[in-house]
Design a protein around this nucleic acid. Structure first.
Length: 486
RNA sequence: GCGGAAGUAGCUCAAUUGGUAGAGCGAUAGCCUUCCAAGCUAUAGGUCGCGAGUUCGAGACUCGUCUUCCGCUCCA
């Protein structure tokens, strides 16, 4: 474990040193749990996003994309349950340092009262709690806890902090006049942008159930503690797809996407043994089935993607609060020859964290290698074995020396290739050193132009992962790399 | 949020018991021309995380603060 943690520190350091990830506003000491993507990071992130987008939309004729705004009508979050469930009064026990949700703490005490047969006290306590919660009376809640001598299960004391509100949604004002009525939230998930557009897309795209709507975009959560590098950030990017199905078929589709999504991660190049399912036992208010796909990060197996069967909770809620019907007319004929008719579709959601997937790719790619050279001395390298199809740069073009016309040949090759993929040109320093630099940023292929190139139009291609070199025709370089990255 | 550890150049680290910051690597420019980093020359780069305090004098001591890592907690 200690080694693995060290490895994580090295991965973080490597990300910064080679232009993948920088702490946000670092010259001002940074901002807690906010990070910027650097010149190589942005490219990798974009490639991962594009790979997801293409596999969702281009390869599924019944899935289309949208790009909803981050700002949404405040009632959206009332409907989704975020306003009621996403902000909870909390209290800490000073002795055990354990934190409780105030309602959970009081409710568990009420249960004890019930077991002791004190029904009236139980009822009075819960009633008092509900009244205080409704008024947001935090001082009253603390007094209620103290008056009832509710103890921490760990320390057994009543030494409590004040009750504090943790709202996980960021808010801001719409319009220049500040006021309660203008308060809007930064979306804590992208899903709601899809739900509120369900009918727009269905009608204008003439979509037939089952169909999906995909979206990538930023979401914001004011986490109490956000840590572990880019694993849990306050601003993060989601890649979500909501799949609308006929009620009663949701488990079938849930299982379909559960399988499909795991396959997708493997197709990206993530080793199967580093992935696993984790079924949710405790389900969220909107779900009737939920599973996580977890990846073994340097700090353990953690959630990478969630697949949720969200029932018709969201559409039903939006229908109720917006007073607009969000139903679908199904023309499929029943046994009696009549159409199925109107219903609110059920939803199966796949939701993957792009930043987490980025960290996954970096984690699985990072390697420190050592070996013995022919003369017996040790050699080593740090290499990012990023799958070629998502690597920031695909090909480095390196003239062996920077004269005798070799740079000119190299630049011609670069001009030919850069229309098709990202290339990197470098003529400084020894060839070995340049290979090491390309290893460090994860460039899968290097081509070296030497004097022989001028005689027979061949070049050396060097493969990052194996360090094997081959002699190929200069004219074949572009096609070979194109083939390897597709 | 609580507890532990850390913060000196891009990186890894130095700086005798407090006496106004050094090295290696890296980077840049030039030389050399060599298919797996570490040849030669030169150059750039640090108000020692930030702010106070103690002191004649603080990178070092004290307090506060910010950031990061670890554990707990949180993650509808």
């Amino acid at each position: 474990m200690a080694n693995e943690n060290n490895n994580f520190s090295e991965i973080i350091a490597h990300c910064k040193e080679y232009g993948y990830i920088f702490p946000s506003s670092e010259i001002y000491d940074g901002l807690s749990a906010v990070y910027d993507y650097g010149q190589n990071g942005v490219q990798l992130k974009k490639n991962i996003r594009d790979y997801w987008w293409k596999s969702m939309t281009q390869l599924h004729e019944n899935i289309v994309g949208i790009d909803a705004a981050i700002f949404m009508h405040p009632l959206t979050w009332k409907a989704s349950g975020h306003i009621d469930n996403f902000s909870d009064p909390m209290i800490d026990n000073k002795d055990s340092q354990k934190r409780y949700r105030v309602d959970h703490l009081i409710e568990s005490h009420a249960e004890i009262l019930a077991h002791e047969g004190k029904k009236e006290e139980e009822f009075a306590l819960l009633k008092a709690m509900e009244e205080l919660l409704a008024k947001d009376d935090f001082e009253g809640l603390k007094k209620l806890i103290e008056d009832n001598k509710i103890k921490c299960a760990v320390s057994g004391t009543c030494n409590w902090t004040d009750v504090r509100q943790f709202n996980l949604m960021f808010d801001t004002q719409l319009g220049s006049v500040a006021g309660e009525a203008d308060k809007i939230y930064l979306r804590p998930e992208t899903a709601q942008g899809i739900f509120v557009n369900f009918l727009n897309v269905q009608k204008t795209g003439r979509m037939k159930i089952p169909f999906g709507i995909a979206q990538t975009g930023k979401a914001f959560r004011n986490e109490i503690v956000a840590r572990q590098f880019i694993f849990r950030m306050r601003e993060f990017e989601q890649m979500e797809m909501q799949f609308f199905v006929k009620p009663g078929t949701e488990m079938q589709w849930y299982n379909y996407w559960k399988t499909e999504r795991l396959k997708w991660h493997e197709s990206l190049g993530i080793p199967a043994e580093k992935l696993r399912y984790h079924d949710h036992v405790k389900l969220a208010h909107y779900a009737n089935a939920a599973v996580d796909i977890e990846f073994e990060f340097p700090f353990g197996f953690k959630e990478l993607e969630g697949i949720h069967s969200r029932t018709d909770f969201d559409l039903k809620q939006h229908q109720e609060l917006s007073k607009k019907k969000l139903q679908y007319f199904d023309n499929e004929l029943k046994e009696d020859g009549k159409p199925v008719g109107n219903y609110i579709p059920y939803v199966v959601e796949t939701s993957v964290g792009l930043d987490r997937l980025f960290l996954t790719v970096i984690s699985m790619s990072y390697a420190e290698e050592k070996w013995k050279k022919e003369d017996g001395t040790e050699d080593s390298r740090v290499v990012l074995k990023i799958p070629a199809k998502i690597a920031p740069y695909k090909l480095a073009i390196l003239p062996l020396i920077k004269k005798d016309g070799l740079p000119e040949i190299a630049k011609n090759l670069m001009n030919e290739c850069k229309q098709s993929f990202y290339t990197f040109y470098e003529e400084k320093d020894s060839i070995g050193k340049r290979y090491r630099r390309m290893d460090a940023i994860g460039t899968p292929f290097c081509v070296t132009i030497d004097h022989q190139t001028k005689e027979d139009n061949t070049v050396t291609i060097r493969y990052r992962d194996t360090m094997i070199q081959e002699r190929i025709l200069l004219a074949d370089v572009k096609n070979l790399v194109t083939k390897k990255i597709s």
